[in-house]
Simulated assay, not measured.
Amino acid sequence: MTLVDVNPSIATREAVSLAEPRDFIELLKPRVMSLVILTAVSGLVVAPGQMNPMLAVISILAIAIGAGAAGALNMWYDADIDAMMSRTAQRPVPTGRVSGEAALTFGLSLSLLSVCLLGLASNWVAAGFLAFTIFFYAVIYTMGLKRSTPQNIVIGGAAGAFPPMIGYAAATGSVSVESTILFLIIFLWTPPHFWALALFKLRDYGSAGVPMLPNVSGERTTRIQIFAYSLVLAPVGAAPFLLGYAGPAYGAVSILLGLNFLRHAFAVLKMADGDVAMLPAKKLFGFSILYLFGLFAMLLVDAAIMSFLQGGA
């Protein structure tokens, strides 16, 4: 089934974009972009030394634009399956508000702009890292992994985990143990987050032909893997404190958040097969967003506290 089969009106709209500015903003996936900004700033903050504030702002803007570009390319390529899923059917391309050609041009243009802007504002190591991240998400994940393997989220999750490493590289021109730990937090968080979503959107993914883990291996295997990833995620989430580059405030919050993540994951593990309500999965999905935002926001708060204490010493 093609996109035109699902929504025949798209065939007549394809040649002309009916988009308003808000439709192009939607192509950027603003909620994902906000997380990218937060994690990239965290990577920049934990980096040693100080970056010129104006260049730091421009660098974060470039990383955000790059994330938006990747989102636009994803929506361009996935328009056919987006049209079949209730969660994504109203996106700009499947509804015909933005033509496929316009979305592709928009994504490619922003990709080039973001990479060049980051290279000029910081360094070309960070810019190359950003270019690779856009390529990884748009080509390796979206065009390759998403439709071919139930491990799509595991491997493809690396794209969403790169921003703190890019932020660190923007400040230093390199990567480190600190930025790698931040990468691992997001990388390990991604499977339980998206598999929880896949549990209560199982029919959507099935009708679209996307081989998410619950559709391929069943609900029980998915619940076990969610809990297994959560067991590893909780201590890794506290690693910045345990390794000494975050203070006790971060340590306390990360431990509390990690224990709550495990509590929700255990509730999902104990769910019965065929649970129609899927309340534990929905609760885990919602809490997982709070968990990640909480961890990285606390890194920034902790850095501010440490800076204040050192300035007053």
Rank of each mutant, 00 (worst) to 15 (best):
W76L: 04
P248K: 09
A127P: 13
L257N: 08
T172S: 08
L55R: 15
V16M: 12
H193K: 06
C116Q: 13
Y245H: 07
A67R: 02
F293R: 13
R22G: 13
G156S: 02
F287S: 06
M212N: 03
M306T: 15
I255V: 15
G144F: 03
V177P: 13
E26D: 10
A47N: 12
I226S: 00
A138C: 03
P8M: 05
Y141R: 00
A249Q: 09
L269K: 13
A265I: 07
L3F: 02
R223Q: 05
V125A: 10
L259C: 15
Y137E: 00
I10H: 12
A238G: 10
M51L: 15
I60H: 03
V268I: 07
V98M: 09
F183Q: 01
G209T: 05
L61Q: 09
F132Y: 08
A40C: 09
I289C: 12
N7P: 09
F261W: 08
G294Y: 08
I224A: 00
N260H: 15
Q90S: 14
Q50S: 15
K282S: 04
G107D: 07
S42Q: 06
I65M: 13
I63M: 06
F200W: 10
F287D: 04
F129K: 01
G167H: 01
R31N: 13
P48R: 06
W189P: 07
L269R: 14
M306F: 14
L231A: 01
L259K: 13
L197I: 11
A70W: 00
R203I: 00
A313T: 12
V93Q: 08
L213V: 07
F293H: 14
M298C: 13
K282G: 05
A103R: 06
D275Q: 08
I140G: 02
P164D: 02
E14S: 12
A64R: 12
Q310W: 13
E20Y: 10
V46E: 09
I37P: 11
Y77I: 08
I60T: 09
E101I: 14
S111E: 09
A208D: 05
L284M: 07
K29W: 04
S99L: 06
I37Y: 10
M54S: 15
G100C: 10
L55T: 07
M212C: 07
G71P: 10
A281K: 05
F135A: 05
I289P: 11
A72T: 08
V236Y: 05
S109P: 13
A281W: 01
Y229D: 00
M33Y: 11
I134K: 03
L130K: 04
S217G: 11
Y250C: 03
R13L: 14
Q90C: 12
F293A: 13
I153R: 01
G244Q: 03
T142W: 03
L118M: 04
L299K: 11
F261P: 02
R31C: 08
A158F: 12
V301G: 05
L44S: 10
G100Q: 12
L233K: 04
M306D: 15
G66L: 01
V139R: 02
A11Y: 09
R147A: 02
T88N: 01
L130F: 00
A89K: 14
